[in-house]
Amino acid sequence: MRTSFSFFDRIRIPDYDSPKQMQAGELLFDQEKCRQCGICVQICPGGCLLTETTTKMDIISGKAKGGKYGVPHVAKTRKGATMCIACYDCGAACPHGAITIKQNFNPGYHYKRLTQTSDMKYPLRY
């Protein structure tokens, strides 16, 4: 029940910006529910959420002044990977329940997760 971790995995460091070698977080933003308040953009640890008009730094520096910021999306590097670690801090902070996780973060090769499945589950009251 543990994912295999071969010698090849152990010695190979993945390319951090390659979506083929790294599974990064992916989110879904509900266009109907989102009120474009920018809270999620502001609190993402890595600043990996953007809207068409604003970034995290625009909001914390006060450059972006209130109003509607647009529906956010996850930023991608040139090679197409996101930097989202699927912490879901954005989802916990969203006042309108507009964010869901589509895919979790699981780096490849040397860093791959071995006993953590990719199933995201809420706390369960056993």
Partner: peptide
């Protein structure tokens, strides 16, 4: 500010 506490889904681990 903003209030950001709240439950989240996390990766399900396998227990032996």
């Amino acid at each position: 500010k903003p209030k950001a506490d709240g439950a989240v889904p996390r990766e399900a681990q396998v227990i032996e």
